[in-house]
Amino acid sequence: MEIDPFIFRLSIFILSIFIGYYVVWSVTPSLHTPLMSVTNAISSVIIVGAIIAALAGKNGNIFDTANIFGFLAIVLAAVNIFGGFLVTQRMLSMYKKKTKDKK
């Protein structure tokens, strides 16, 4: 009997939850705010769905309602991707050690 590919995806999902669990517990509490902004940025990988939705139209027509929603999602996700990663970068660049900071 063949296994439904859904089961494979489910396995990936469950194992990723465990990975997430252990990885996030090891995040130092002082970096919890950057953690939130970076998770926000990476969850915008939903843009891949938006790109397919926008570009792969029926009969090459890309101005169907379905495509329009795809394009809208692209804008929203793009705001998040750039905003999320850049603001994380900006925050992380502020964390300095004592020794480096001595004047």
Binding site: I12, F13, S16, G20, G49
Partner: peptide
């Protein structure tokens, strides 16, 4: 989509 599933699980548990 694997990337979305992995990311969703990571962000969800985080």
């Amino acid at each position: 989509n694997t990337a979305l599933i992995i990311t969703g699980a990571l962000v969800g548990s985080s």
